[in-house]
Simulated assay, not measured.
Amino acid sequence: MSHRNARLTVHGRRILVARVLAGRPVAHVAAEMGISRPTAHKWVRRWKSEGDAGLVDRSSRPCRTPHRTPAAVEERVCDLRRTRKLGPARIGPILGLPASTVHRVLTRHRLNRLAWLDRPTGIVIRRYERERPGELIHIDVKKLGRIPDGGGHKILGRQAGRATRNNAGFDYVHSAVDDHSRLAYSEIHPDEKVATCAAFLTRAAAFFAGLGITRIERVLTDNAWAYRKGLAWKQALADIGATGKLTRPYRPQTNGKVERFNRTLADEWAYQRPYTTNNERTAALADFLHTYNHHRSHTALGGHPPITRVNNPAGQYT
């Protein structure tokens, strides 16, 4: 949900409109769906005037903010930050502003962390982000040791677990992350061969399409053989109409969004709790992905889950 207290998603609003158009009283439909009558009338009215586009969340930002810091003053704050690398406590007295106001200005312009700035030039280098969902998809594979029946060392202890792990083999978790929205999709496979990678890309594209990202323009991967030379991989790219891109050799930071997702995957799913079997861990992946995409707050998205960036591609809530 885009708004913290919203009771309905875009899909739920479509259901509401469909029930009203079928002849049901608006008051009855509102009660069934746990919303007020004015809210139900609002969504019906927007749908009648704008169609499905009217059911998408709008920004809560006011049309005007009379007490906001003037743009010229904000520019001076940003200039002092870029050129002299000063903090809010030092910029404030120079411009006659409270340090808290200076901090809000720097945060609004993403200059609040010096680590995000290139020291010689003052250019923001910490984060980059594509402008729309589907413009770039990051793909990577994470290798995980399989869990033997009865559990590994997290349940049996390190000495006993080491003996049970022999010849257990590995799982290969293939993941795709949309650069703009951070929407993620993962599958577990026994290998990372060309055919496996190509089939995963096809299913990942279908997953994103089902959530509203109907076109994938570019796919970024590391320099694994399957992505560089695999004919099936190139055919899969052609089938979805995407262009393949490779990272610089020995430079995983280029594919950083999916690399960071791999860490979250390990912390909040793979090693989140002791599993007694490998199948138990595999079965938990679907719930983790749903939580990650629809409910888990993401710091890079202003505390909102990734699905909000698909419903709200302009990113007003970040």
Rank of each mutant, 00 (worst) to 15 (best):
P88G: 11
V77E: 03
A160T: 06
A242Q: 01
L8G: 03
T69D: 07
I188C: 11
T264G: 04
L136S: 05
D140F: 04
N255E: 07
R14W: 07
W233T: 12
L16Y: 09
E32W: 04
N223E: 07
I137D: 04
N112S: 13
L97D: 02
G92I: 11
L231S: 12
K143R: 15
Y292T: 07
N223P: 09
R81Q: 09
A286K: 10
Q159F: 01
Y227F: 15
Q253M: 06
P252R: 07
E32F: 06
N5G: 06
H290Y: 11
R251N: 15
R130S: 11
T264F: 01
L231F: 03
G152V: 09
T65W: 02
P88L: 04
L285R: 11
M33F: 14
P25A: 09
R228L: 12
C63D: 11
A205N: 04
Y250M: 03
I15W: 01
D222K: 02
D171T: 14
K42L: 14
P25F: 08
A195M: 02
A184T: 11
G230R: 06
R68E: 13
D239P: 00
N311S: 11
W225D: 03
A209W: 08
G302W: 03
D57G: 12
I188Y: 08
D178S: 11
P274R: 13
W116M: 01
R132W: 10
L183D: 00
F261L: 04
Y250T: 11
L136C: 02
P25D: 06
N166T: 15
R90K: 15
R182H: 12
I35G: 09
D57A: 15
R113D: 12
A238C: 05
P66D: 10
L21D: 14
R81M: 10
D179Y: 05
R132H: 14
P93K: 13
R104I: 00
A168R: 02
R158Y: 08
P93C: 06
G212D: 08
Y250D: 12
P120F: 05
N311I: 00
T69A: 14
A27Q: 14
R14M: 11
F207K: 08
W233I: 01
L211V: 07
I307K: 08
M33E: 10
T264H: 04
G315C: 13
C63H: 14
P305Y: 01
W116K: 00
A176D: 02
H189A: 15
C197Y: 02
G169K: 07
Q272H: 12
V73P: 01
H138R: 09
I155A: 10
C63I: 05
K229F: 11
N255G: 10
A199V: 00
I307D: 05
G161N: 09
